[in-house]
Each structure stands twice: as C-alpha cells, then as structure tokens.
C-alpha cells in the first residue's frame, strides 16, 4: 500500500472529504467572526461599518491571511471535486434501483442529500464570489470611492458594497436559502467528518453530535441575519 492507493481507496477519499470539510468549518468561524463586525452598528449607529471595514482591511493586508486564502481555495477545490466524484461513483454502484425505496425509514434526508446540498452551496459560492470577492480583489466594482478608517488607513468601503448588494430582495432570499442549505450540510457533515476520522468513543460522539447541532444552527443563522438586517434597515447608514 503506497500513499496514493491509501488516499484513493473508499475510506481514503472519505478522509480527504473529512479533513477538507473540517478545514472549511474552521474557515466559516473566521468568516463569521469578521462579518459579524457589521452588527456593531446595532449598538453604535455612528459606526457606519467602520469596525467591519477595519477587520476586512486587516484581512486584506496581513500576509498570513493572504497565504491562507490560497490554502482555502485549495481546500474548497479538493472538497468540491472529491465530493462530486464520490457522489457520481456512489450513485453508479447500484445500476438497477428499487421499486419501493427505504426513504426516511433508515436515514435523514439531508444525510442522503449531501451531494445536492453541496451543489447548491457551490452555485451560491460562485454568486458570492461575484458579489464580493472578485470586486474586492480585482474589479473594484462598487468600491470606487475609498474611505478613511478610524485607524487612519485608506480602504475599500466593503460595508457599503454589502448594503448595496443586500438592498435587492432576490439577493437576500438567495442568501437565506443558501444558509439553510449550509445548515443541513453541516448538520450531517460536522459529525460525519469526525466519524470518518475514526471517532468511535461513545462519550466523544455525544459531545460531537451536540457541538455539531449547535454549530449547524448558530453559524448559518448569524450569516443569514446579515442580509436580513441590511434589507430590513437594522444595520446600515
């Protein structure tokens, strides 16, 4: 057994999915933390996104974060490609299906729909990059007027880009639906990743299950509240 045959076996592929999945889960926490700075506006109406823009500016100028950005893209790429390959391969293991299906009698619908939920998230990701990542890195569309931050650095007004983007109803609806998909994707993925990495200790499985449910509810909820708060005018100028 060499490395490639171990990593390309059925368990090996799942280990790759689990490791990249947990990496993306850790990224979500950072992403949520930075973006939650917009909520300072709720407590301090004079903030106008200054705290969030400072956080975004910090992320953009820090070398380590920029290196991690490349690693993050690699993580996304491997997780998506491997996930699609696995879904395709697994589906082809039963050429002739059943007339009556087991359905929900043995497993949860979202556990069986990771490929579908993941594909929805991929489509959302493309839209999300087009909305924010590509303008901030390359085109600067909607970011033409730099602002002076309270720490005396000149930066893009990402907060303004957010408020403009989330002023449209369809965008808010799409983002909320994506957050619901993310919640169900995590509800299975969080605990499944640990099982794939060999966590068989009953005590820890209970802990991981509880953590998984909490994570899958809280993180997508906080993300979903961002477009909602901006559309409703709770957060903004």
């Amino acid at each position: 057994m060499n490395w490639s045959s171990i990593l390309s076996s059925s368990i090996g592929k799942k280990i790759v999915m689990a490791v990249t999945g947990l990496f993306l889960i850790s990224f979500l926490l950072v992403h949520m933390g930075v973006n939650a700075c917009i909520f300072k506006d709720l407590f301090d109406p004079t903030d106008n996104g200054d705290m969030f823009n400072r956080a975004a500016d910090y992320m953009g100028k820090t070398a380590l974060i920029r290196i991690m950005e490349v690693v993050l893209f690699a993580g996304f790429f491997v997780h998506i490609i491997q996930g699609l390959i696995l879904e395709w391969e697994n589906r082809n293991k039963r050429k002739k299906g059943y007339a009556v299906n087991l359905g929900n009698k043995g497993s949860k619908w979202y556990s069986r729909s990771m490929g579908l939920l993941g594909t929805i998230l991929l489509l959302f990701l493309i839209l999300h990059w087009w909305h924010f990542w590509i303008p901030s890195r390359f085109t600067h569309a909607g970011l033409e007027n730099p602002i002076l931050l309270s720490n005396n650095r000149v930066s893009h007004d990402m907060f303004k880009l957010m408020t403009v983007t989330f002023s449209e109803w369809w965008v808010v609806v799409v983002y909320v639906l994506a957050c619901i998909s993310l919640a169900y994707h995590l509800l299975h993925g969080f605990q499944s990743a640990f099982r794939t990495l060999g966590l068989s200790n009953t005590r820890y499985i209970k802990l991981i299950n509880a953590l998984g449910v909490a994570y899958s509810v809280i993180v997508p909820l906080v993300f979903a509240l961002m477009p909602i708060s901006m559309k409703m005018g709770w957060v903004g100028f």
Binding site: S10, N90, S107, T196
Partner: peptide, 30 residues
C-alpha cells in the same frame, strides 16, 4: 460504494450491528 455515514445500514441490520463499528474501522484503516 464508499460510506457516507447515513445510518441506513444500522437501522435495517437484523443483528443490530452498531454504526460505531464503522468509525472503528476508519480508525483501524487510518
């Protein structure tokens, strides 16, 4: 196929083999 931890196997097993064993197999393999 590959395991995706859906739990359908455990639900239908006539001998009620626990899915925890799959985690142990993953551990052994790793």
């Amino acid at each position: 196929g590959a395991c995706t931890n859906t739990g359908a196997c455990e639900a239908v097993c006539p001998k009620e083999i626990s899915i925890t064993n799959i985690a142990r197999l993953n551990q052994e393999y790793l």
